[in-house]
Nucleic acid binder design. Structure first.
Lengths: 161, 161
DNA sequence: CTTGGAAAGTCAACAAGGCTGACATAAACT
DNA sequence: AGTTTATGTCAGCCTTGTTGACTTTCCAAG
């Protein structure tokens, strides 16, 4: 089912794969460049952006949840979270049922910065989507999903619910 | 040409863009995970991989060329290049016409490691391409290209020649 | 033939953001 | 009462990015 089942798949030459790899590399740079500039002005880095993004996405999420999504150690995340809380962008509320948990929320200031970052990144994404067309977008999403680790893909799908 | 030319483009909701952003983030993690594991065993990092990749791609390229492609400072690149040369994976040949330039080449050992990294990354890419199908791949590429900085897109196109 | 400037390399210092390991505390569970 | 879980924190290390200053080499133009 592979030898000739891949009628159109014969085009998967070494060179094509290599170009796909390079496209990912260069595109990811573009993808992060706008938020990076904004973060820089505020003295933050990409790690802060990621935390803000996912707290905004799932308000009330716990630290453990966030660790699983971000795939970093708690020490690494804590360093970032500590500064965001100290700067009044994030709030950690003690859990109602389980009081060990901290439920993370953005403050008004946190929402403001997240929006600014999000707007910049979304603007580029929108431009790319428009330029490529709706069918390209569907393909883009399918390939990206197929590229994720299965475990991560599940979390990704859960977020999109 | 934009106001209503986007018949199908009305679907660009905030939520869709957000999912695209998350897909990029998670997919990039998958994209780098296999090479990362191999690099770790050799005591190298992603920066070494990038250097090996582009030297392999454009044998005889100069340090300045590489700097432009990688978008880092020469000090940063030099540190990586120095270890690769010391470890006998890369060779820097003095330029024939302009003897200030170093023309970079992989040694046999360099080619071996690059292949190992490349094979791992290509395997994932191939699997994702097959799973998503040829039309999705075309769309994937179009969106990625539209996401790059224009300057970078030109370099990307030049590489693909 | 001198001099300006480009290409390359090096040293030092610093920061972000990963990591490990060890340990503390509070709360929940058994 | 004892164990497990969630979180936080200290200390230290690594990679990989940065800036700034400086040197060496060497081409090319005056």
């Amino acid at each position: 089912m592979d030898g000739q089942g891949g009628e159109k798949l014969l085009f998967l030459t070494d060179e094509q794969l290599r170009q796909g790899i390079e496209a990912m590399f260069f595109a990811y740079r573009g993808f992060t460049s706008d938020p990076d500039r904004i973060l820089d002005q505020h003295g933050y880095g990409r790690a802060h952006h990621r935390a803000l993004h996912f707290i905004n996405r799932s308000p009330g999420t716990t630290v453990t949840n966030l660790l699983a999504i971000l795939g970093v150690t708690k020490q690494s995340l804590n360093r970032v979270l500590r500064t965001l809380i100290a700067d009044g962008l994030v709030e950690g509320r003690v859990g109602a049922q389980d009081r060990r948990e901290r439920h993370l929320h953005l403050t008004a200031a946190g929402v403001a910065l997240e929006s600014q970052l999000s707007d910049a990144q979304q603007a580029r994404m929108r431009q790319a989507y428009r330029q490529a067309g709706p069918e390209a977008v569907a393909g883009f999403r399918r390939v990206l999903e197929a590229m994720m680790e299965p475990e991560i893909r599940r979390q990704y799908a859960r977020l999109a619910e």
